[in-house]
Computed example of a mutant assay.
Amino acid sequence: MTFADDMSDDENWTGGFYELCLVLGAADDDNVDRALRSLWRAVGVQGCHVRRADGTGFAEVELGVAALHEHGHLRGTLTLPSGARVVCGGFLSRYESVDTLELYLPLGALARADRRIGGYPFDESSGVKSLTWRSALDRWLADVALAVYGDVPFHRALIGFEIDEDRDIAANRRYAAVLMSCVDGLEYRPADA
């Protein structure tokens, strides 16, 4: 039997990533540290692990921005709203002095937890059909983002498969869900493609 929350099962890490990207703003390690801790808490990640340098599994590390800088990716497990447990990970992207903190759910693990996911985004049930499962996942991740925003305000959040911000949110059809700043905080705009 296979388990979607087995970190040592390489199949769980395949297929690309379904992501929650928090665009934090100007590079600031203290802000990243607070956002990372808030994100892990809000989504209920258990553990903070990194791949061992010799490739023999995982080692536990202390959650924090220092671990992100030293190891790149942090990994753990979480429980989806369906009750299924899956592996997850996080990393920091610092590009042109802008920090983006990302939580990712590997599609290999998600597909083991929910058969509807299949070969998303490359099979016949992708696109608009995939909104049958993506809408609930997106809304849950949006609620996680809102919880983090209450602790550490950020510029915007994006939710979807391997987000390319320019392509995914600027087009007539959105492949990613978006939380954008508005007068009252954040406005949720669901994916529609």
Rank of each mutant, 00 (worst) to 15 (best):
L103K: 01
L107I: 05
W133H: 10
F122S: 06
S93H: 10
G150F: 01
G150S: 07
Y175H: 15
D143K: 01
S126T: 11
T100M: 08
G118T: 01
R134A: 10
F122A: 09
H155C: 05
D143R: 05
A113N: 07
I169R: 15
V178S: 14
R139T: 13
L110N: 06
R134N: 07
R173H: 15
S126V: 07
L131V: 07
H155P: 00
R112A: 13
L146N: 04
F122Y: 12
D164C: 02
F154H: 02
Y149L: 00
V128C: 02
L105K: 05
V148M: 00
L105A: 03
V178L: 15
R94C: 12
R156W: 02
D166P: 00
E96T: 09
A171H: 13
P106Q: 06
A111N: 11
T100C: 12
V144I: 10
R116H: 09
R156K: 14
D114Q: 09
Y95E: 10
D123V: 04
L107W: 07
S135C: 03
D123C: 04
D151K: 03
R167F: 04
R139M: 08
D138M: 06
K129W: 05
P153L: 01
F161G: 09
Y95W: 08
E165C: 05
R94H: 04
L103Y: 01
F122I: 02
L105T: 04
L103A: 02
S97R: 12
S97E: 14
A171K: 12
V144K: 01
G160I: 13
V128K: 11
I169D: 12
G127A: 13
Y149D: 09
S126H: 05
Y104W: 02
K129A: 13
M180D: 15
L158P: 03
A111T: 13
L107S: 02
A136Y: 09
G119P: 00
L158D: 04
L179I: 09
S97W: 09
A157I: 11
T132Q: 13
G127M: 08
L141S: 03
I159S: 03
A176Q: 15
A147G: 00
W133Q: 06
L105V: 03
G118D: 06
L110R: 08
L103I: 01
S126W: 06
S125Q: 14
G160H: 11
L105C: 03
Y120T: 05
N172K: 14
G108N: 11
M180I: 12
W140E: 09
V148S: 00
I163D: 07
D123K: 06
G108K: 10
Y149M: 00
V128I: 15
V152C: 08
D138H: 10
A142S: 09
V98W: 04
R173F: 14
S97C: 01
A177M: 12
N172P: 08
A157Y: 11
W133K: 12
Y95P: 00
L131D: 02
N172V: 08
R94T: 14
L107K: 05
D168H: 14
G119W: 02
R173W: 15
D123Q: 06
D138Y: 08
M180T: 15
I117D: 02
V144H: 02
M180F: 11
V144D: 01
I163S: 04
D123M: 05
R115F: 08
R174N: 15
G119I: 00
V128T: 09
E102C: 13
D123G: 09
A111Y: 08
G90C: 11
G127D: 14
L141R: 02
A170E: 12
S135M: 06
L146F: 01
